[in-house]
């Protein structure tokens, strides 16, 4: 999505107000076609058009991924007791 300079400047007051007022009001705005605010890892994501899908974090942290890329020697060296 590309924004014009005018659209961007117009969105600033709305975004600031949304962060201050909080999620309940944002939800009502969303129902009215207003902006949508999502929070993930304590970081806000604001969609001022109200057309985007709410952000859904991945279902798992996949924190074992590091194991697949390791050699047997590396595995034993670093994680001998996992």
């Amino acid at each position: 999505m590309s924004w014009s300079r005018r659209e961007f400047l117009c969105s600033i007051p709305l975004a600031g107000g949304a962060l201050v007022v909080g999620t309940p009001l944002i939800a009502r705005l969303a129902l009215n076609g207003g902006p949508v605010l999502s929070l993930h890892l304590d970081q806000p994501y604001l969609d001022p058009t109200g057309t985007a899908e709410p952000y859904r974090p991945p279902p798992g942290m996949r924190s074992a991924d590091v194991l697949a890329g390791m050699s047997d020697i590396e595995l034993s060296r670093y994680y001998g007791f996992i």
Binding site: P59, G60, R62, L67
Partner: peptide
């Protein structure tokens, strides 16, 4: 083992 949620542990789990 649920690799989608836990990641690919390549069978390296107790």
């Amino acid at each position: 083992f649920d690799t989608k949620r836990a990641g690919n542990a390549a069978g390296r789990v107790t």
